[in-house]
Write a protein that binds this DNA or RNA. Sequence first.
DNA 1: AGGCGAAAAATTTTGGAAAATCGTTGACAC
DNA 2: GTGTCAACGATTTTCCAAAATTTTTCGCCT
Lengths: 239, 239
Amino acid sequence: MPSRMKTAPDNRSGGPTIATSVYDRIRRDIISGALAPGHKLGSTTLRERYQAGISPVREALNRLVAENLVCFEDQKGFHVAGIGAEDLDDLIRTRCHIEEIALRESIANGDDAWEDGIVVAFHRLSKVPRSAAEDGFEFNPEWEELHHAFHTAILAGCGSPRIQTYCELLADQAKRYRQLAATISYPHRNERDEHQDIMDAVIARDVERAVALHHAHLKKTNDIIVRSGLSLSPERVPA
Amino acid sequence: MPSRMKTAPDNRSGGPTIATSVYDRIRRDIISGALAPGHKLGSTTLRERYQAGISPVREALNRLVAENLVCFEDQKGFHVAGIGAEDLDDLIRTRCHIEEIALRESIANGDDAWEDGIVVAFHRLSKVPRSAAEDGFEFNPEWEELHHAFHTAILAGCGSPRIQTYCELLADQAKRYRQLAATISYPHRNERDEHQDIMDAVIARDVERAVALHHAHLKKTNDIIVRSGLSLSPERVPA
DNA sequence: AGGCGAAAAATTTTGGAAAATCGTTGACAC
DNA sequence: GTGTCAACGATTTTCCAAAATTTTTCGCCT
């Protein structure tokens, strides 16, 4: 370990600047649950954990506040955003609303390239197992990424950068809940068929059916998280 | 209860920290147009302009990136977010979508206190003239604030912190366009009646009428900005 | 003249140390 | 025993200077 090297020699993996690199790593750790909800993010601790100075760390945290993954209060520092049943409910309901908009617009405006993108994304997703382990559930990052890509592909046709960005934001927040729940219990469900049905309805331009399936898809995720036994005390939301 | 202010809650004359103070001031300057769209926000310049060190300035800018008022690129620094006809169109259409959701939810869930809030906000708004000058238009900050409060009051009943926060965000972005347009030409329109009609429909719980009026209200703003002659070259959007 | 490349300048990024602030502990008075 | 206050300790916030990077400038060659 080159402790006294001038700067990280190979800094390309993640971003050109240290701040961006630290941002990526903290972000991953929060979503994966390595940094627990409500956990204090003190300057000194993070400086050690990520081997960086105060400035990049602080910058990274500031960026994360924008995504609602980190809370900040003047003179009190940074905390990992709390979780709670109430917040989860708001999150899912908001996703239903916003993604319905994006879905309707996508179906209305989507062109051939858009359709192709969905088919490809689904195909890729189908080839990867839900769980990294044969028996029982083990987090599979590849599946997670392709799953995200599939849903993104569907909403990509909506034609509104703002709505698309916001959908991504909400999806990341939901991902954290999903991750936390996944560490506790493995929900058995046939997600492949769900995705297939959604895709079919979307490609067929059957708006109402697509919306209904999409809503059900999101609600099911919510139920699974709630049922997983994840302690969602509302007190854990600092802000 | 959740009076979600975007700025720090403790906003007494500058804020507790320099970063927050600088954040408020830059924010004001961008929305008011004092800092033109696309303008470079160099560390040295801002350090002089706001009489603060690099760290607080950088922190303030990072917070503003979250609101889409500032763009950032690694190794290239900060710029005031660009404007453009395309972006304005996206903004207005997004507002129509999101605020329709908030409006429907508000009408469905709003209680007596919510109704009271709307009536009070409207009353206060009615007492203040649209223009600060007797003849011709002059920007009236008091009216702007009360106008904002009126619309916020209507959407306050939606029960979703996320949607409400996002509405505020979009409203601030729209405010900048409105401000820039206002410096050029004064659009004559009877906004008081428009607000009255919206309020009446909302209080009467006439959802469809309220939504229709609300959409028309937003679209009219868009038309006025476009017609104001504000140069909206799409090239001015850096990111 | 125009294009190429290297030094120079300007700017961004980073690290650490000083200053300011908040929460706590402990002592003292009542 | 209780309440107040002051000093301490820990943490955040800020400033400044050095390091790394990008952009510009200028000389040089084709």
